[in-house]
Amino acid sequence: MKDLYENEMKLEFLSKSNNEAFARITVAAFAAQLDPTIEELADIKTAVSEAVTNCIIHGYEDREGIIKIRTKIFRDTIIIEISDTGNGIENIDKAREPLYTSKPNLERSGMGFTIMESFMDDVKVESILGLGTKVTMTKKIKLLNKEKEEELKDSLLFT
């Protein structure tokens, strides 16, 4: 089957908190080619912001490290991988629980993973203690654009 969209980008930056805005804006700019609604774009920005903040606060605990983002677009779906080579998560299930935070003294709400899960369609977390963490988030962007629907129809006809 012919692929409607296939595109990819990679981003690497230092784990500095002023890169949080850069990361979410860059991923949103890349996602814009799928013609998302304003709400879908806001969801992606928020989920990216949560994942990058986790890398900085928990992965590297404010040490300097590299955060990597790899974003793929496949047909109408965006796949965003955000990884660090920091501390790793001891108990992933616990970390994903709403309101759980390992850093209550920093006024963290413990809502990071809950927000990622509810704003994206799928969130996968892989982590090895001492080696790092990778979060993979997937979101399907609904087809709104008429032209895109036509293209999709065509691509289905000729396969």
């Binding site: 920005k45 928020t46 903040t53 920093l106 006024e107 963290r108 709400s109 809502m111």
Partner: peptide, 13 residues
């Protein structure tokens, strides 16, 4: 125009 979960912690604090 934008707020993530850091804002929740800030408001609650």
């Amino acid at each position: 125009s934008f707020m993530d979960s850091s804002g929740i912690g800030m408001v609650v604090g």
